Amino acid sequence: MSNLMDPVVTIVTPSYNCSRFIKETIASVKAQTFTDWEMIIVDDCSSDNSCEIIEAEAALDSRIKLHRLQKNSGAAVARNTAMNMSRGRYLAFLDSDDLWLPTKLELQLDFMRTQDVGFSFTSYRVMSEEGELTERVIGVVPSINYDTLLKNTIIGCLTVMLDRHKLGQVQMPNIRAKQDTGMWLSILKKGHLAYGLPVELSYYRLVKGSISNNKIKAVYKMWRLYRDVEKLNPFKALWCLMNYVKNAVFKRL
């Protein structure tokens, strides 16, 4: 049962060898105009000094919490661990190299409460690994359902907010990639819709070597999500994949 002292929002952040970026990511959370949040950072056995940086930040702000996994398990386990520890009604997701604009939580919470929705996502801008902002802004659609998301790549994890009072308990599938998309699909499969807020509220860092930046690997991981998690037959999976690739190309343009 919720306690009156529980935060409104839990921010879920997986961490792995993120010492170059994590302090800036945390700073973007601390700069939020909405302040009733907790940030749970789950470290996946980093070999750099990520944990020391996070511990120093947590010592300065009790809203920031660090949990260390005992063995390297992947982002899905890290995020699920954070969600299991969370106390907020709303879940928001921010990876350890991405950034939020200061009004992100305030505007998105207001949107969800005003529109009475349980799942929202927003526009975001792509930045380089070095933090240089690009001209690429990923927009939103007013709403998206399960069948449409199977063929699309429009929901950025760093933009998502979920209301657990409306959606119930949520978990990511324990896969090494596309686990966020897998969770969005599991929610929408129950008949929920995801609603887009057409405001740029986040910066997504494009890191060299990441799965999201390796297009061939990303397509293969999407195929495995269709077949292994969603259990689509090969023909429907191929149809969805063709549309996914087409929409991904349009998104880049």
Results as ranks from 00 to 15, higher is better:
114 T>R: 13
177 A>S: 15
173 P>F: 06
10 T>W: 01
32 Q>W: 02
43 D>K: 02
179 Q>P: 12
169 Q>E: 15
199 V>Y: 14
47 S>W: 03
210 S>D: 10
132 E>H: 09
64 I>G: 00
232 L>W: 02
20 R>M: 07
34 F>I: 03
209 G>F: 05
84 N>R: 13
70 Q>M: 11
159 T>L: 10
157 C>Y: 06
166 K>I: 13
120 S>V: 09
54 I>P: 02
45 C>G: 05
147 D>R: 15
72 N>K: 15
65 K>H: 00
175 I>W: 09
33 T>L: 02
49 N>E: 06
36 D>S: 06
231 K>F: 11
195 Y>Q: 13
66 L>E: 02
148 T>F: 12
158 L>T: 15
57 E>T: 00
141 V>D: 05
231 K>P: 07
127 M>A: 08
227 R>K: 13
71 K>P: 04
167 L>N: 09
77 V>G: 04
203 Y>A: 13
3 N>M: 12
203 Y>S: 14
128 S>D: 06
162 L>N: 06
193 L>H: 11
103 T>G: 06
145 N>V: 12
249 V>M: 10
163 D>H: 10
178 K>F: 15
202 S>A: 15
192 H>W: 13
69 L>V: 01
111 F>G: 06
44 D>R: 04
51 C>E: 06
177 A>D: 14
66 L>C: 03
127 M>Y: 04
172 M>E: 12
172 M>T: 09
156 G>A: 06
117 V>F: 02
133 L>T: 14
11 I>V: 08
57 E>Y: 02
143 S>M: 15
105 L>T: 01
9 V>H: 01
79 R>K: 03
220 Y>K: 15
119 F>M: 03
237 A>R: 04
1 M>K: 09
63 R>K: 07
39 M>G: 04
106 E>G: 03
54 I>K: 01
14 P>L: 08
177 A>T: 12
93 F>W: 00
135 E>S: 15
184 W>N: 12
135 E>L: 12
90 Y>M: 03
219 V>E: 11
185 L>Y: 09
140 V>K: 11
190 K>P: 04
214 N>R: 11
192 H>P: 14
145 N>T: 13
